[in-house]
Write a protein that binds this DNA or RNA. Sequence first.
DNA 1: TTAAGTGCAAATATTTTGCTGTCAC
DNA 2: GTGACAGCAAAATATTTGCACTTAA
Lengths: 158, 158
Amino acid sequence: MLQEQTDLGPGKLLPPGYLQDQLVARGVRLTRQRRVILRVIEDARRHLDAATILRFAQKEDETIDRVTVYRTLNLLKRHGLIDELDLLHLSGGSHYYEQRPPRQHMHLACLRCGQVEEFASPLFDKIKGQIQRERGFRVAFARVEIGGYCQKCAGNQA
Amino acid sequence: MLQEQTDLGPGKLLPPGYLQDQLVARGVRLTRQRRVILRVIEDARRHLDAATILRFAQKEDETIDRVTVYRTLNLLKRHGLIDELDLLHLSGGSHYYEQRPPRQHMHLACLRCGQVEEFASPLFDKIKGQIQRERGFRVAFARVEIGGYCQKCAGNQA
DNA sequence: TTAAGTGCAAATATTTTGCTGTCAC
DNA sequence: GTGACAGCAAAATATTTGCACTTAA
């Protein structure tokens, strides 16, 4: 498993309570359980999988069920408020979730230490334009997962 | 023989028998079952998941087991000869596999019809250079999955 | 010959669904 | 009050592991 505390977490560029506010604005009912789960996702300092979200949520409310976590994640996905990632399955078969960021970024996953950094580049927007023009494909969202060796690990071995 | 007709399949830019040759070159034992599975992957005209690979393989040899497919896929992954993809889970929770292409490309998955196209851009190599320079992150491979609407579907609903 | 691979059964892991009672609005 | 939601149990789906037999090199 990835370390519990990593340095870089998913970028925190959105106001606190954003997920709640968005759901309310869309007329979705806010339950006690959802509030807790949303808070866990917003406060995350790294990408969490469903099982970890459950664990954190249960610290605050023991009765929250695994199923409720999955249903809430699906709800957020349907509303386009979070993104589902694989992070290259560096630590098992489950998915990871992050609040959809205002600006698309890429994930750099270190094959050695498992740390995940984020990276954004204006060139990627150019690529999207290219796709649109050359293929007539209307891009809704993008997921970029890059495997390799982080500065520290690359230095230590190669 | 692999006629489950789709549009674009994974690009066929590698010589036939490439996977076999690579495994032999690496001193891996070639069994009857592995030969069949490798052939299925090489002949694929689209991205296949484990269950589909099994189905095709069993057409040729009924006795091949699901487990052998998974073990062979893991073998190929370990040797970096195939890539594992999600294709955004447009059609279930399983993974899809493609022979690792000589040139990285992106996957464009249509959220409406589920069709998957491939797209390559020299700009993406520039981004990799950027990552290397700005972060000291040594890129080994990349996976890009883009969701949106293909030309046909975008036209039909816009 | 013999280490590696296979099939089978079973375990594990992850996510979804059906149902009934409960709660947010 | 009522329709959406939660919890529980169970199913569905996806993948891995243990073990005894088989086979490629």
